[in-house]
Amino acid sequence: MKLFLFSILALTVSFTNLKAQSTPEVKGAWQLNQDETKHHLFFQNGFYFHTVQQGNVFVGTNGGLYEIKDNTIITKVLFNSLDSTKVGSKIDYPFSVTTTELVVTAPDGQATFQRVDDGNAPLAGVWHITGRMQDGKLSPIHQTGTRQTYKLLTGTKFQWVAIDPGKKQFSGTGGGSYTFKDGKYVENIEFFSRDNTRVGASLSFDGKLEDRNWHHSGLSSKGDKIYEIWSKIGDN
Rank of each mutant, 00 (worst) to 15 (best):
A124K: 09
V87P: 15
I189Q: 03
S177T: 13
Q143Y: 06
E190A: 03
P122W: 08
L78N: 00
Q44G: 00
R198T: 02
N80S: 02
H216V: 09
Q54T: 14
L5T: 11
E228Y: 01
D164F: 13
N17L: 07
D70F: 06
F15D: 14
L3Y: 08
P165V: 02
I91N: 09
V103N: 12
I141W: 10
G136M: 07
I73A: 02
K69Y: 01
D224Y: 07
D135G: 03
D117R: 13
Y48S: 01
I233C: 05
T12W: 08
D224T: 08
K168A: 03
W30M: 07
I229M: 09
Q54L: 14
K90M: 07
H40C: 00
P94T: 08
Q159L: 01
E36V: 15
D211K: 15
S204M: 14
G64I: 13
L11E: 14
F95I: 11
N80F: 06
A106N: 15
A20G: 13
F192I: 12
Q21G: 14
F47V: 01
G207Y: 07
I73P: 08
H40I: 08
D224N: 08
R132Y: 07
T12N: 09
L203R: 02
K69C: 08
K184E: 01
E36T: 06
E190W: 05
V26E: 04
F43D: 04
Q44D: 05
Q114G: 03
T23Y: 09
Q44M: 09
T98K: 10
V87M: 02
K2S: 05
Q53K: 10
L65G: 00
H128T: 06
R198I: 05
K222I: 07
D224C: 03
V26L: 05
P122Y: 10
K225D: 02
T100W: 00
D164T: 12
L153S: 04
N17I: 15
K137N: 03
K168Y: 02
D206W: 07
G55E: 04
V97N: 05
V104Y: 03
N80E: 00
Q53V: 11
P140Q: 13
R194K: 15
F191T: 05
G207R: 09
S231Y: 08
S84I: 14
T23S: 05
H40S: 05
N17V: 14
I226G: 09
F191M: 04
H215R: 07
P107A: 09
I233S: 01
F205S: 11
T51R: 09
P122G: 06
A106K: 10
T61A: 01
T154P: 02
T51V: 07
F42L: 04
K2L: 11
S171E: 13
K157W: 03
G55A: 06
D224S: 12
N120R: 14
Q159H: 09
T173E: 11
G145P: 15
Y150V: 09
R147C: 13
F79A: 04
T98P: 15
V57I: 14
S171Y: 10
T23W: 12
I91A: 00
F205H: 12
F58R: 01
D70C: 10
S202Q: 14
K181A: 07
S84L: 10
S89Y: 10
